[in-house]
Computed example of a mutant assay.
Amino acid sequence: MAITFYTKKLGTPTSALSKLKQAIDKKEATTWKYVGDTFHYLPEQWRGAVKFKAALKEDSVTFLAQKGDLTGTKTYGDAYNYVHGRFLELLLGHAGPHGSIITQDTRK
């Protein structure tokens, strides 16, 4: 899934990334971590299953889901649905009031 966040009210796509990273750094979003511009969900059940790589554009940030490492009985489809919901929650809670969000299912 691609999640595109249009950043008109924040000014730049970098500002949207900064908002998310600040929330994680300030422990306001304790179930996430980031490495560079890639965001990872931390709870054990879904850890590493899906990650979101940020791609900066002129007026937006697109977060592209990437398949990670799954262990146990969960499938990528299970993780895909659940972790996307949690990522949207992160985005809406910490940057959402400052822009518009569009999602697109890019699975084939």
Rank of each mutant, 00 (worst) to 15 (best):
R86I: 05
V61T: 06
T73I: 09
E58Q: 13
K57S: 11
A55P: 08
K26F: 15
Q45C: 08
D25C: 12
K51H: 12
I24C: 13
G68P: 08
M1W: 11
Y34W: 11
K53M: 05
T31H: 08
V50H: 00
A29F: 05
Q66H: 15
H84D: 06
F52E: 07
F87C: 04
P13G: 03
Y41A: 02
K8V: 00
E44H: 10
E58N: 12
G99N: 01
Q22M: 15
K27R: 15
F5L: 01
N81H: 14
Q45S: 06
G99I: 01
K53Q: 15
L70Q: 09
G72C: 03
V61H: 06
H98L: 12
Y82M: 06
I24E: 13
D25Y: 15
H84A: 06
E28V: 14
G99T: 00
A55W: 15
K21M: 13
S15M: 07
K108P: 14
K67E: 02
W46N: 02
A79W: 01
S60T: 00
G93S: 13
T4I: 03
K108L: 10
Y6S: 01
A95S: 10
E44D: 12
L92W: 09
G68C: 02
Y82Q: 05
P43M: 04
G77R: 15
D105M: 14
Q22D: 15
I24H: 11
T71D: 11
K19C: 15
K51C: 03
K21C: 12
S18L: 07
A29Q: 12
K27Q: 15
G68H: 03
L90N: 06
G48V: 01
S15N: 03
L91D: 05
T12C: 08
A95G: 08
T71R: 06
G68T: 00
A65R: 03
G36A: 14
T73L: 11
L92E: 12
K67I: 08
Y41F: 09
K108D: 11
L88I: 09
T75L: 06
F52W: 08
G96D: 01
G11T: 10
T14W: 10
P13D: 07
D69I: 02
K21T: 11
Q45M: 13
Q104C: 09
T62V: 05
S60K: 07
W46C: 05
K74E: 04
L56N: 13
K19A: 07
A16L: 10
K74T: 05
V61G: 01
G36R: 14
W32A: 10
K57F: 12
V83M: 03
Y41C: 00
L92H: 10
K8R: 06
V61L: 07
L88P: 01
P97A: 03
K67G: 03
A16K: 03
